[in-house]
């Protein structure tokens, strides 16, 4: 079998010239993540879930995060809330996103506070309706909080107080956001205890470990004990970016190669997402947002 083949998708109906139609994806559909060792497509259901992505510099973490953000951007009812200490990794989605936070600690904390408030309001609302979680086509959509380089916010920028506050807010959102459709996807190089608190790290159900520099680092990303069973992302070829171990459904690490979008691809998808979102009122135009 030729592994380079693109996985065939159902043909998209041609969009009319004026009214943009959404891509017809839903965050309730699993995200196509790549292929596994057997050449089968690997899917990642993101709804009601959170994912932590780790790996050495250049392992392909941001590319994977872009795939997840790209899927969410094409979902008509998902709002994007992007935090990126490096700006360029998620920056191409800036116009499609509701909030884009660069290397700005204050903005990051303000944003997480907003998300937290939304979460609390949603829970109050659900309680008033005597419900416990949201479903597809609900009254309100989902929110994807994607954070690249968590280490920048939780260990580098600002002072200790701010960093702890950031970690605490993020932990709260990861811990409680699930049932109201707030999804967190976070990437960092080595999520050891000096970067993010283990109590936050252990909340992420799903893990992706790109190549790691040693077996201990791999265990930190995947969870303790996987190296002993032979699952160490240290054995991945450093030149094979995008390959890694994924813990998703089944709970056993699965060796996968993540799908890759070139910058041109990302720009194309992002522009389309921006266009459809502006028409449907999901994303405010950039100038309005910065003025607010």
């Amino acid at each position: 079998m030729d592994l380079t083949d693109t996985i065939e998708l159902p043909p998209q109906p041609d969009a009319p010239q004026t009214v943009p139609v959404g891509a017809g994806l839903s965050i309730f559909d699993p995200v196509f993540l790549g292929i596994d060792e057997f050449g089968h497509p690997a899917y990642l259901p993101m709804i009601y879930r959170n994912i932590l992505i780790g790996g050495e510099p250049g392992a392909g973490k941001s590319s994977l995060l872009n795939t997840i953000v790209g899927h969410a951007a094409l979902c008509p009812d998902v709002r994007l809330c992007l935090l990126d200490g490096k700006q360029v990794e998620l920056g191409l989605w800036k116009d499609a996103a509701d909030v884009f936070v660069g290397p700005d600690m204050d903005h990051a904390i303000r944003t997480l506070r907003r998300v937290q408030t939304v979460m609390d309001n949603r829970y109050s609302f659900l309680l008033a309706r005597r419900r416990r979680k949201i479903g597809p086509n609900d009254l309100f959509g989902q929110i994807l909080v994607a954070c690249d380089e968590i280490a920048y916010f939780s260990a580098t920028a600002g002072d200790k107080k701010d960093q702890d506050l950031f970690a605490a807010l993020l932990r709260d959102i990861v811990a409680r956001g699930r049932a109201v459709g707030i999804i967190v996807a976070a990437a960092t190089q080595r999520p050891s205890s000096d970067i993010i608190p283990p109590s936050l790290r252990d909340l992420f159900a799903w893990r992706f470990a790109g190549r790691c520099t040693n077996d201990v680092s791999s265990d930190i990303v995947l969870g303790h004990g996987w190296y002993a069973r032979g699952f160490s992302s240290n054995s991945i070829d450093p030149n094979n970016q995008g390959e890694g171990y994924l813990i998703a459904e089944g709970g056993i690490p699965n060796r996968v190669k993540a799908a890759y979008m070139t910058d041109a691809d990302i720009i194309r998808v992002a522009d389309y997402a921006t266009w459809t979102r502006r028409r449907s009122g999901l994303a405010a135009p950039a100038d309005l947002r910065t003025a607010a």
Partner: peptide, 21 residues
């Protein structure tokens, strides 16, 4: 078996005639 690049299918969801904005 995972040495090749896997092309993401997401761009296929985008219609061809999107205005560059």
């Amino acid at each position: 078996p995972l040495a090749h690049t896997v092309v993401s299918p997401l761009p296929d969801y985008v219609p061809r005639d999107v205005p560059a904005n």
